[in-house]
Design a binder for these strands. Sequence first.
DNA 1: GTATTTCTTTACGTATACATTAAACTTGGC
DNA 2: GCCAAGTTTAATGTATACGTAAAGAAATAC
Lengths: 224, 224
Amino acid sequence: MNHEARSKSTTALAVERLKDMIVSGELSARSDHLESELAERLGMSRTPVREATLVLQSMGLLEVRPRKGVRIRPVTVEDMNEVYEVLTELESLAAARAAGLGYGRDDLAVLSDTIDRMEYALGSEDRDAWAKADEDFHTELVRLGGNSRVAEIVSMFNDQVRRARNTTLYARPLPTTSNEDHSALYNAILSGDVDRAHEIHKGHRVRARKLLTEVLAKLGIRYL
Amino acid sequence: MNHEARSKSTTALAVERLKDMIVSGELSARSDHLESELAERLGMSRTPVREATLVLQSMGLLEVRPRKGVRIRPVTVEDMNEVYEVLTELESLAAARAAGLGYGRDDLAVLSDTIDRMEYALGSEDRDAWAKADEDFHTELVRLGGNSRVAEIVSMFNDQVRRARNTTLYARPLPTTSNEDHSALYNAILSGDVDRAHEIHKGHRVRARKLLTEVLAKLGIRYL
DNA sequence: GTATTTCTTTACGTATACATTAAACTTGGC
DNA sequence: GCCAAGTTTAATGTATACGTAAAGAAATAC
């Protein structure tokens, strides 16, 4: 009997490890890597690495460029705008749908918890904890929205910009105002106010995006 | 010198062929297929087939189920609702953005052409031509929207529901009213009316979805 | 010195071989 | 007759082998 998680396929492991390496910056943006190099680094043959790169390519994290190695995709300011535009629409949709589904306090317990965690993290100025809670908040929100495709896209796009977000996390003001948005959204969902939920979250996202682009501009960052 | 299209990789070919087979129904929904079976049918080894199935899985067209063969994903009514919900949001966004980009008549020539083709197809009651033109219209619209990620998602989701759409194409009234929407949208984009473009297309999509679900309900279809 | 061509290298694409393991079948106990 | 344990089967997961073609290096012509 295996007390650990059941042994995953090597390919799945490669996807996981490579994703981590990309998000953490261990594989830096715009760097090229041969399949054989990655295979050696991961201690496996080229086959699972190849399969993993295909998957990661479809997730938008890298580009397979024959004979030049896979290139870790940089996230340009333009990319950020595209991603945030989609996230704004789809999350707002999810918020509205969630409000329309008649959730009660129990159903929203997880969401409420993420809000509390953000608040607490803000108090102790723990940016990492705040970022984690914020991501959980968004994940739970789209889950509540009940459209699995929306949830998938949001998850994928979050992966794409996570590195960028990490970079800016310590270079921006603490998002003290955003928690008001979160609470307001929670209330809108609980009270079933579809339009208000949509409105609040859309505004929240638009402001977050503006803040981010300003920070990037101030830092003179073109890509991450 | 090769006068044909430059020889594609076997994997790319497998993706293409399998996609065609799925969309055309040659591989029917809910059917299972072993890698070796598909490899033989396509006259290639398992390797490119495997890679293709990974890609098609990420496109949502099939599911890789170890030791049971890949399963061609059925499209349930629920799936259709999810997909159409996302398409509604993202295409409306694209319409609004397109309207905001100050396109002139020349820029909108392709869009205009697809509208003409739909009108003509309606006159001659050529449903296939209409469907093709309609799809081109939507593709061009999101291209004009200028957000490549939106365009990608829309393309992927269209693939997912194309089989369903083909099935209902001859079981529904000819969409005679929809062309008014298209013209109105064209004018809104040309005149730069962002809000109206959004509004028109959203309404258009909502009506199209309603029509489709009604047809499916009437036919008693649960999945396609 | 530069440009062109040939040669060499090498990374990838594909096929094949092999190991693994889930599922199916068989057999024996009850 | 039914269930469980063990065995067999076969499809996948992974590694490896090999041919091909692209990128780069070298050599030669100018």
